[in-house]
Simulated assay, not measured.
Amino acid sequence: MNKIKIAAALLLAGCIGSAPASAAPVFSDLNTVTPEDLVNSLLSGGSGITINSVSYTGANEASGLFSNGNSSNVGINQGLVLSSGILGNMASDFSDDNGAAGNPLLEAYNGNRPTFNASTLTIDFTPQGNQITFSYVFGSREYPDYVNDDYNDAFALLVNGENRALIPGTDTAVSINTVNCGDENGDDPTNCNLFRDNRNGNISDLDLGGFTQIFNVIAAVNPGVVNTLTLVIGDTQDDILDSVVFLSGGSLAVCGGPDQPPCQPGPSPVSEPGMLGIAGMALLAMGGLRRSCRRR
Rank of each mutant, 00 (worst) to 15 (best):
I176C: 13
G182C: 11
G257Q: 12
S271H: 06
D188V: 14
L247E: 12
V270G: 04
D242K: 08
V245C: 08
G266N: 01
D183L: 11
G209H: 08
N185I: 12
G201D: 00
N180C: 12
N193R: 05
V217W: 00
V226E: 15
F195C: 02
G234C: 06
G257V: 13
D197K: 07
D259Y: 06
V232Q: 06
I233R: 03
D235E: 04
V254Y: 01
N202W: 09
N216Q: 12
G209Q: 12
S248H: 05
L194C: 11
D188M: 13
V245G: 06
L208G: 00
P168A: 04
G201R: 00
V225D: 09
G256S: 08
N216I: 08
S175N: 14
S204I: 07
L241F: 13
L206H: 01
F215G: 05
L247M: 15
L208N: 00
A220P: 06
L206V: 00
S268C: 04
V226I: 15
T178K: 03
N202Q: 14
P262F: 09
V217S: 01
G234E: 07
D235Y: 05
N198K: 10
G266K: 01
L194S: 13
G209C: 04
T172N: 03
D187G: 14
C255Q: 07
F195M: 03
N191H: 10
T178P: 02
N177P: 11
G249I: 03
N185F: 15
S251W: 05
I218G: 10
E184D: 08
V245H: 09
N193L: 03
G224I: 00
N202C: 13
P273I: 03
G182W: 08
L194Q: 14
N177S: 15
G182E: 07
I203G: 02
F211W: 13
G234Y: 03
D187P: 08
S204E: 12
C255K: 05
N198V: 05
D171H: 07
C263S: 05
A253T: 08
V221A: 06
C263F: 04
G224C: 00
D207A: 15
V174F: 07
G182R: 12
F195W: 05
P273H: 04
V270N: 05
V245P: 08
I233Q: 07
D205Y: 09
S204P: 10
N180L: 09
S243E: 06
G266V: 00
S268H: 04
F195H: 01
S251N: 03
D235T: 06
V226D: 15
D171K: 10
F215V: 14
L229M: 12
